[in-house]
Design a protein around this nucleic acid. Structure first.
Lengths: 179, 179
DNA sequence: AGGCGTAACTTGAAACTTCAAGTGATGCGC
DNA sequence: GCGCATCACTTGAAGTTTCAAGTTACGCCT
């Protein structure tokens, strides 16, 4: 296909900029706005809740959770970034901050000298233990308590589909989505 | 109630920290993780799309859209912040940046000297006109094209419920949620 | 063994957000 | 018409994220 003459190529690629854009219908707009409102409000809500009760934003808390669930409470940086859907750069800065707090420690990977483990410290584990109940309560109150079981299930399906669609096509390949 | 003896008060307020926290079930966790993954990936995706094609992050784009839809292409700062579910402070900084780009202009409110209007400039309108099709396409591709009509409807309902729950209880009152 | 493309991770600066404090205006009670 | 609590908005600093560029190590190819 890429070897076709340019004129044919131009024909087969109807310039998207010239196509009449398919605007969102009134109903689609309502859905999209609701999505934006709900996600902004919820993120904001949980950020404040955790900043207040645990001294860190929501995503940092998520990092500790990941580490807490991992074997030996440690994860390679790239692995952790992948689990949390964030860039390595962002993770580097975040771990640096968590390290200053004494909640995470870095360890060299013995088998690959480029590699680093992020390890949950005992202090980190303790923070998690202390603040997890409050956080779960906040999530329940804002989300689960307001939805019927059917809605919860539906939400799960929808979110899986969306996440799936935005993720790398390849399974075991490298991580093209990580910048 | 607040005048009861402390012992009774202690009784009537079963210390929430002592209650056995209702952890998320395995299924609830799956839903919650899917939600977090999808929302992070989508936000990231749209931020990149708009940064690339319009030179601004998603939320700044949203501000322009709001202004574009408003009568006389202008909105009071507080109104705009409320529509977008962000704090006034954040909006102040954002508008300052958009002003530098020449996409928004501030105007004094004649009837209330404290007030400011954010006004969409012609350049701002032009940017919107030029980049809207691409953005709609991105939203469709990431979200609507992947969902059945039933799922779209369900998503709308769910998100309305969640947003509703996180918003100020009072209708016409002031804006307690704005910090 | 020596290159060389790439992987894993970090860094610094610029952009953005949050937080607390600050500036004037408003309007209401007296 | 004078306080004074509140409102509308801004500001600066500290914290976080992005972006591009950097460092070191790995693995493969010859």
């Amino acid at each position: 296909m890429s070897t076709l003459p340019t004129s044919a190529a131009a024909l087969e690629r109807p310039p998207q900029t010239a196509e009449a854009p398919r605007w969102l219908s009134a109903e689609e707009q309502r859905v999209w706005r609701a999505y934006l409102h709900a996600t902004t409000l919820l993120e904001d809500h949980l950020d404040r809740q955790l900043q207040r009760d645990a001294g860190m934003p929501h995503i940092y808390y998520g990092l500790l959770v990941q580490l807490g669930e991992a074997p030996r409470r440690r994860l390679r940086m790239t692995e952790l970034a992948k689990n949390m859907k964030i860039t390595r750069s962002r993770l580097s800065h975040a771990v640096a901050r968590l390290e200053k707090n004494g909640w995470v420690r870095r360890e060299d990977c013995p088998s690959d000298k480029r590699g680093q483990f992020a390890v949950l410290t005992d202090e980190g584990h303790e923070v998690l233990r202390r603040t997890a109940p409050g956080h779960v309560a906040a999530v329940r109150q804002a989300l689960f308590d307001r939805l019927t079981p059917e809605q919860q299930q539906s939400l799960g399906e929808i979110m899986r589909i969306v996440a799936e669609g935005l993720q790398p096509k390849e399974a075991g390949a490298d991580l093209p989505w990580l910048r």
